[in-house]
Amino acid sequence: MDRNYFVYILTNKNKTVVYTGVTNDLEVRLTQHRENKDNKFAFTYKYNCYYLVYFEHFQYIEHAIEREKEIKGWTRAKKNALIETENKNWDFLNDTITEE
């Protein structure tokens, strides 16, 4: 059985802040961050951080969580470099993703 887990990085409109998260449904999670009706995502709400700029796909949740923790421990410069390996211009990918 194929599983879909994602580590993702969001930014705000001015690309001044980044947020790293993990989910099993990227499309739904992006909607949750954008709508944030109950302020469940306090950091992303505070900084209007809901623009997807990077994501990785994993088959196993353990691997996704491990990768999320790794990225969260990085400096901002290293996170920027990671984003730019796949998305040099920091294009917002929200409307281009589809579940695999």
Score class of each variant (00 low, 15 high):
2 D>A: 09
3 R>S: 14
3 R>I: 11
3 R>N: 15
9 I>H: 02
10 L>M: 03
10 L>E: 02
11 T>K: 02
13 K>I: 11
14 N>H: 09
15 K>G: 00
16 T>C: 01
16 T>M: 01
17 V>Q: 14
17 V>N: 12
17 V>P: 02
23 T>C: 05
25 D>V: 04
25 D>M: 02
26 L>C: 06
26 L>K: 07
28 V>I: 11
32 Q>Y: 07
33 H>Y: 11
34 R>I: 08
34 R>T: 10
34 R>H: 12
34 R>S: 11
38 D>V: 10
40 K>D: 07
40 K>M: 09
43 F>C: 02
44 T>E: 15
47 Y>D: 07
49 C>K: 07
49 C>R: 13
51 Y>W: 12
52 L>G: 04
52 L>F: 14
53 V>N: 03
53 V>I: 11
54 Y>D: 04
54 Y>C: 09
54 Y>G: 04
56 E>A: 13
57 H>R: 13
57 H>M: 07
65 I>R: 15
67 R>G: 06
67 R>W: 14
68 E>I: 04
69 K>R: 10
70 E>A: 03
71 I>R: 01
73 G>Q: 04
73 G>I: 07
73 G>Y: 13
74 W>R: 08
74 W>A: 01
78 K>D: 05
78 K>I: 09
78 K>R: 14
82 L>D: 05
83 I>Q: 00
83 I>G: 00
84 E>D: 02
85 T>N: 05
85 T>S: 09
91 D>S: 05
93 L>G: 01
94 N>K: 03
94 N>R: 06
95 D>Y: 07
95 D>G: 02
95 D>V: 03
96 T>C: 05
96 T>I: 04
99 E>W: 09
100 E>G: 03
100 E>K: 09
100 E>P: 14
